[in-house]
Design a protein around this nucleic acid. Sequence first.
DNA 1: TAGGCCATCTGGTCCT
DNA 2: AGGACCAGATGGCCTA
Length: 339
Amino acid sequence: MDATQLTELMGSHDFMQLQQQLQHNNNNYNTDGHNGLSPESVERSSRPVRRATRRTSQLSNNTYDLEMTDSSSQSDDTSGGGGSSNGGGSSTNNNSNQLGCAQGGQRPSSRGRQQNATAGASLTPNSGANNNNNNNRRRKGALNAKERNLRRLESNERERMRMHSLNDAFQSLREVIPHVEMERRLSKIETLTLAKNYIINLTHIILSKRNEEAAAMELNAGAVGGVLLTGLTAEPNGNNGGAATNGATNGLCFEDALASGGAYDCALLAASDGSLLSAATVAATPTMQTLQPPPAMHMHAQSQVDQQAQQHLPHHQQLLHAHAHLGANIVINYFSTRR
DNA sequence: TAGGCCATCTGGTCCT
DNA sequence: AGGACCAGATGGCCTA
């Protein structure tokens, strides 16, 4: 699908087609336990093919010599960094290794621990981090080379597994984000961007609905009740990224939050788009829990609901309508921010 | 050929 | 102490 087709699709509001595209994407992206791609998509997109082979070849090509006794030749010197024994990154001299390590030591800690004063001087290969690690080096030096190599291999394996699980999570995310099929699968950054837009739009729609309901309630002096979004409660806390209430976890999936009856911190979501939301927390009610169709449903329902008839539909179908628009919106948003 | 994206290795840092 | 997490470094593959 090219940009022209996308534009036409958005203009015609042919959400059935969009839904079909979504389903097609999901079929192609179903995980197979390795690269998460079906054979046909592998054939169509070169990137997944490479991933499928890389994931196993790295293991089989691992030439780590467990009997090696000279640790320096295998880059497991604790004073260095960036070295590699196989298909990964490999440095050809120790100076570059040490420099790379020193730069790594300078990066701000993401977990709040104070940087050691000497770390700032560690750009010099023989100072800073190297001196700080004297004790570690001695301690590790007490292990024999075989043991160290084994530890390194185990560590590599764990890291590989960790990254695989992360990639699996990305794949799961791709499968639930409505998007127009492209010739290749979504990259990680594209997936995150779409997910962010999707969440923001969902939040926006729900809050808009809620505002409409509130306005209607005011006009009717509370005569209307028992509708879909009356259970939503906005609780501005004046704190961007502040803690969600009702035991919710920041960063919780929106639908998960709704399904679990928890609360969702909208301020956290809107942090990158301050213009969007003022309300901070949306709490879900049991009413909401029963009205969470799978993503595919959003598009399907929309394709059968025209603007006129919608006014006579129950509120939950109106929400579906809104979700269908959302599918188009996030695509438009994505492409408008992407290029 | 440059640039994008990715998988992997690696050592430092933090947490349990 | 061991594992998880993180980010830098590197090379492979692909596309424009």
